[in-house]
Structures are given as structure tokens and as C-alpha cells.
Design a protein around this nucleic acid. Sequence first.
DNA 1: CCTGGATGAGACATCCGTGTCTCATATGGG
DNA 2: CCCATATGAGACACGGATGTCTCATCCAGG
Lengths: 183, 183
Amino acid sequence: MAVDPEHVLRAAAALLTRKSTATMDEVAKAAGISRATLHRHFAGRDALVRALEALGIAECEAALDEARLDEGSASDAVRRLVGAIEPAAGLLAFLYTENQLFEGEEQNAGWATIDDRISALFRRGQLGGEFRVDLTPAWLTEALYGLMASGAWLVHSGKGAPKDFQHMIVELLLGGALRREES
Amino acid sequence: MAVDPEHVLRAAAALLTRKSTATMDEVAKAAGISRATLHRHFAGRDALVRALEALGIAECEAALDEARLDEGSASDAVRRLVGAIEPAAGLLAFLYTENQLFEGEEQNAGWATIDDRISALFRRGQLGGEFRVDLTPAWLTEALYGLMASGAWLVHSGKGAPKDFQHMIVELLLGGALRREES
DNA sequence: CCTGGATGAGACATCCGTGTCTCATATGGG
DNA sequence: CCCATATGAGACACGGATGTCTCATCCAGG
């Protein structure tokens, strides 16, 4: 019988990614459990969202580890990062819009850590002469988030193929829209 | 006494941009009117959001007109567009996250028109050999939205200066993060 | 077989936001 | 000056979502 909290979180994430205003009852149904049991594991919607936030942070950290940001060229590291983070893009897009989390003062410190790791990657690319220096690492990081949200939206709306997700984002982020003669 | 609906909408947009879950009562207070009067002008939260959506669309259309997308190089047109749309970026970011509007089937057709106009700009740039052709106009359009949302967020959070808004977005969108030898 | 823990179903009270109403007040034009 | 109109303040009921509780059921382990 024992309900798997992980499975519940996955189901909740999948549902809330599509319908961010879903009821606790809908979340319970989506997870295949009753509302009572859902409330036994996550005391209220707030706790559920916090748990989802922790899950999203954990998946981001895992993607950051998997991408081995310190190895090889910064460009390749960005490419690996986007590829590794793609499965979590839907959840991240949900959390991104759940700005309730960022309006209060009790925002999870995990995001700052992630920001720092990604910013460090862009900084490494700048110091290595790979990336241009007139765009700040903070902006490049934020832009990466925005592009991933846009990419997730494009795929979700059916206007783009999931297999193009990584290519679209990385090519635009690194190469830009302008056509080049060389390279 | 006559309340200016335009002013109410501006105040509502400013508040909802910061706190998307604001109550009708909070919106009324922000606009300096009573909740009763607010409800006399906009019959319910839904109507208010629709009015904001219409305002956002109108501002987008105005920015599109002002940017004269058909004139000069596509790159310069993009640059003008971002500059012209900047004042509305906060409102657009709010509407962007108000995905409630897009979950139903009754989404405002105005967005499609705007999408088409921007897509046409990118397509013009591709046909003219100015933009690369391996990124679809639909993706470039969506990416522009995402970058504007990220830029608005960066400015709002104090991590970036408003004066850099246009430069950050246009440079990244067109030029990408990679450092170039020429140009 | 039996017992304890976990779950499902449902009832119930509560809170919050909303929509609606009334009444007093103030403003501006005739 | 008088009256129509708009506004502000507040009361009131409604609905939806939530939190909490009880009880029956089911399954696993002893």
C-alpha cells in the first residue's frame, strides 16, 4: 500500500506543469491516491509546492553535475547542460511562473547556488576568451532560463519538436540569430 | 471624480506585474479607488485581466507600428522593436505567466496577429540572407518573448540596469554569446 | 488467523475571495 | 441653489478550495 512520495511528486509535477491552478483533489486523482492520503504526505498545497521546488532544485543540481561544467570548452558544457536539464524543463517552467515563491523573503537558497554555478560557467567562458564580455554572466544565466522556458512552451504547444529542444536553445544562446560567413 | 479607466489599468498592471496573485481589493487600493468602483468599471477579476490583455496587445501593436519592421535591415528592425516594446515588458511578462488565458480555447486572436508580424520580420531577415535559416521564425519569435521576460525580470530584481535592457536582449538574440573575431 | 498500520471515501467546518447590495457623501453641471 | 451622478464604505451571501475528522476497508506481517 505504502504510497511512494516520489511518484506522487512526479504526478503532481506533470499535472501542474500543464495546469498550474489544479486543485489538491485533482493532484490526488492524478497521483492515483485520495485527497486524504495526499494531505497525509504533504500538509497542504504550500508544502506540496515546496516539495516540488526541492525536487526541481535537486534535478537541476543533478543536471549540473551530469553536465560536468568544468570540463572541456564552455560551449560544450552549455550544450551538455541544456541537454541534461531538458527532462526537468517542464517542472522548472512551472516553478518559474510560481513566482509566489520569489515574492516572499523565504526563497529557497538552492536557486542561488544554481545561479552561481551557471554564472561561473559563463564567467569561465569569458575568461577563456570563448564568450563575449559585454554581456554579464548574470544576464546570460537569466537568458538561459528564459530560453529554456520558451523552448518548453514551444514544445508543449506543439509548435516545435522535443528533439530540437537542445539545438534551438544552444544555437540561439551561443550563436545568435545572425548568419555568419565563416565557421 | 470620474475615474480614469486607463489609469486604473496602469496601476493594476504595475501591481500585478509584481504580485500576480493580488486581490481585487489590493488592485483597487493600488489604483486609489474603492473595490466597489473597481467592480463598476471592470466586472470581476476576469474582465480586468481581459482588459489588461487588450491593453498589452494594443501596446504591442503600437510598438510594432513604431518600430517600422519593414524598413531597413531586419537587425535594425529587431533593435527598434525591442526598444519600443520595453515600456510594456513588465505587463507582457505578467500576461505571459497568466497562462490561464492560454489554457482555455478562447484565447485572444490578437496574440496570433502579433506572432505573425514578428515571425514575418524574422522570415524577412532569413530571406534577405541576414538571419540563419536553421532556426525557425516561430522559435525566434518565442525566444524573443522569453528573452524580454528574462530581461524584465533581471531589471525588476535589480540585477540589471533598465538602460541595458535593449542592448542585452538584442545583442544576445542576434549575436549570441560567442566571441567573434571580426565585426 | 489475527492484529496493526495505511488507505479511501465522505462529511463537516472554515477561510478567503468574490459578486452584489445599500446608503451616505461629494462633486459638478444646470 | 438643487439635483443627477459617481464614488466610498461597509454589510451580506455565495462558492470554491482547503484542513480536519471519522469510519470502513484492505493488506502485510506475526
